[in-house]
Amino acid sequence: MFRYIVRRLLQMVLTFFGATFFVYALMFANQDDPIQALAGERPITESVRQALTERYHLDDPFLLQYWYYMKGMLTGDFGTSLTGRKISDMMEVAWPVTIKLGLIAIVIAAAVAVTSGVIAGIRRGSIFDNVTLVITLIILSLPIVVLAPLAQLIFGIKLGWFPPTAGATPTFWALLLPALVLGSLVIATELRVTRSSVAENLRSDYVRTARAKGLSRKRVIGVHVLRNSLIPVVTLIGVDIGGLMSGAIVTERIFNVPGVGFNLFRGIRTEDGPLVVGFVSILVIVFLVVNLLVDLLYAALDPRIRYE
């Protein structure tokens, strides 16, 4: 187990450098004229341009720029955004918001998906099963760029149940609608996996044994079947966190949630290299750590899995 964790951590280091280098290269290749992008429509004097170029090492070779950047980041200095704000300050504001949004999304999605998945799995072919199938198909077929503005229009503006945008310091209530939209990204697959997993486990031999032991149906399903059925679902939820991160870019932008996705969106649009790479680097770490935790959790849930 210990060896496995060490090996995974070493793999994570490689993945981290690979991913950040890739993103850095993309931002670099994409750079048209960051100084003009920074200034917007206004003209820039030659001396300002020169000063900025020097300050951001824009004339240095690409590899050297990556080196400067990584050196700064590993010593805790994420640098400054092209807007002049320190990136670490921006993160301090952005991350808590996104974590809150993500957690609400995951909890709601998992709760709904697991509950309905279990019911649909037990009552295969019932009205409930068919209705959830249709609803999940609709949700699956709607991309988030459609779903998010649609939800904002219907529930935020027309019905007025939720605030249409979140604002600078969003409350739980303001985050609920974006979280629902975000959660709908993963709810359909989680529900389908729970359903098929429960259906499969219900047919297994150990369920027959449990019934032969004179256990109640509630106990057979709630203890024996559920414990087995949740193993693939938990793994899926871990993988889904990656999907939520990318979904957050669109969702936060549309609902004006001042989180990671919102900053990333702005960074990409203004060609703000340091901003994008800084945020993505942390995203990569979060994603890797979550996946490691999920794999360890998998072994804890299924005693047949042992990592060497």
């Binding site: 031999d205 150990y206 032969a212 087995n228």
Partner: peptide, 21 residues
């Protein structure tokens, strides 16, 4: 009545026992 008065054992004990308990 099950297990108290009438009990049963099955063919393949590996699949008849719950793997995660």
């Amino acid at each position: 009545v099950r297990a108290n008065q009438i009990a049963m054992i099955f063919q393949d004990a590996l699949s008849a026992l719950n793997p995660v308990f």
